[in-house]
């Protein structure tokens, strides 16, 4: 995979600190699955956490903390894999990064896509907590006027490609946007463009289509 757009340092630091909303953390984990460059970078941002752990004042433990844990060491292991770091065989669509494939559990074509406007379909991942995460599927030649609103917004291209004011984005690339960015992605091949979009604030569209789309998205 030829990836040319990566995360901002600040985003990887938030990922390492564990402060991203669930959808954004999922998206970062997906890109990391594909991108050795960002895996190297996240080793550095994780090491900030490790160094801070070394510098923390130790807290008092329960009196029998060690004994009660030693007693559990021989317990049979149960399912404890966290999707974020699991490397097991992905369920569902093998073209997807494993963390997302495990969450969806089915190939993308079999998912219940909902039409939200001309040439645009989506699936809300309905994750808990702040922000939103959705899959967006945009038909060839369709342009989606789009406006980030104050918060942070991450986009990971899963399939196909698009062009906008910020460049060309292909499979594996991320757009890491903040503040008030107005952009208009245009799907520039004859293949659907499918992306994962995660925000820490509700997603808003602008322009004529935005006004049409907004009520259907229900934001």
């Amino acid at each position: 995979m030829n990836i040319s757009h990566h995360f901002d340092d600040a985003t990887l630091m938030a990922y390492s600190a564990g402060t991203l909303p669930e959808g954004m953390a999922l998206l970062v984990a997906c890109h990391l699955h594909w991108c050795p460059h960002c895996r190297d970078r996240v080793e550095v941002t994780n090491s900030v956490g490790g160094a801070l752990l070394d510098r923390l004042e130790p807290a008092a433990l329960d009196d029998n903390a060690l004994d009660s844990l030693l007693a559990r060491l021989d317990e049979p292991e149960q399912e404890f894999a966290s999707p974020e770091h699991s490397r097991s065989e992905p369920a569902g669509d093998s073209e997807l990064p494993a963390p997302l494939a495990q969450l969806l559990g089915a190939p993308m074509d079999e998912l219940p896509w909902k039409r939200i406007g001309y040439g645009v379909r989506q699936i809300d991942l309905e994750l808990k907590g702040p922000g939103a995460a959705r899959l967006l599927r945009i038909s060839p030649g369709v342009s989606v006027p789009h406006h980030t609103h104050g918060g942070n917004e991450l986009t990971l291209i899963l399939k196909g490609s698009y062009n906008d004011e910020l460049g060309r984005f292909c499979r594996g690339d991320v757009a890491d946007l903040d503040g008030d960015v107005e952009h208009q992605p245009l799907v520039d091949t004859d293949e659907d463009c499918i992306c994962l979009i995660a925000t820490d604030a509700p997603l808003k569209f602008s322009g004529l289509m935005g006004r049409l789309v907004q009520p259907f998205i229900g934001l």
Partner: peptide, 15 residues
């Protein structure tokens, strides 16, 4: 070679 014990345990505790 990828991380120190502190960093590795930090990521487990964080998750």
């Amino acid at each position: 070679t990828k991380a120190s014990a502190s960093t590795w345990i930090f990521t487990l505790a964080r998750n």
